[in-house]
Amino acid sequence: MNMLNIISEIEKRDPEVFEKISPRRKAMKEFANFGGKVALASIPFALGSMFKKAYGGPTDAITDVLQFALTLEYLEAEYYTTALAAPGLTATLTGAARGAIQTISAHETAHVAALKATLQALGTTPVAKPTFDFSAGSGPGGPGLGNGPLSGANSPFVNYAVFLAVAQTFEDTGVRAYKGQAGNLITNNDVLTAALQIHSVEARHASHIRQMRRATGLAVPAGVTVKPWITLNQSGVAAPFDAYVQSSYNGEEVTSQANVNIMTVGGNTFSAAAASEAFDEPLTKAEVLAIVDGFIV
């Protein structure tokens, strides 16, 4: 952990830092002796809380990333909460499938709470939950709330095939979004680690939903096998819904990493499909916001 380094850096600029947080000195000392035994998630919360008490204001651009992540988690959490309560899915989202979605839903709701708590601990007011439009009708030039292409019989809360396709897209997009922000968190070890811990959970979710889609075969194009990992830039989603999710998969077809051609690396021969599957690709914040734009009023 570089927490003590952080504090010592602050001390260079503000020699009174230890006096300012003096009521918490004991806690600081305990932090120094922590080792790996305490749940990591609690550390950024508590650390942020100490700085907030000492300085009162927002810390730095780290919070921008956290606000962005919170917006995506709000989207996912509301999506699953709505689906689990939707009368239109009671006949289709059943048994093990419903259990899996309940597991995923609980994680997304926990992510919302964790990100809000982290932001608050850093002295920043979390962004409010937007109004979501799961018909994908909002955003500039859209037909408006509830009138998008995923409405009526194509609503994800009526049509189980659409529900799974959109869920897969949200999870795969979430993985790419967190990946794209990791570099922006590199100065804060604790927030970076927590973000990575969310990132891999989203990937586990994506893997399972892809298995659900494979098992049901719903809205899967003929001749396509949906795998737990992303093959080239294939969404594995059939027309007409593929058009609404393709931008989440563009750029995943990369077969070269850090100037190393994965298809021929080390004397092996891999197909482009395998080479692309072995590495997931990031998305920028702007790319992610463009993807989810239609879902946010």
């Binding site: 967190y178 990946k179 893997s207 599957e277």
Partner: peptide, 18 residues
């Protein structure tokens, strides 16, 4: 390097889940 690690870990997580 952090990004490269990130590109791999999510694939490992997909494996783990499967």
């Amino acid at each position: 390097y952090l990004l490269l690690a990130g590109k791999i870990v999510s694939v490992e997580a997909r494996h783990a889940a499967l």
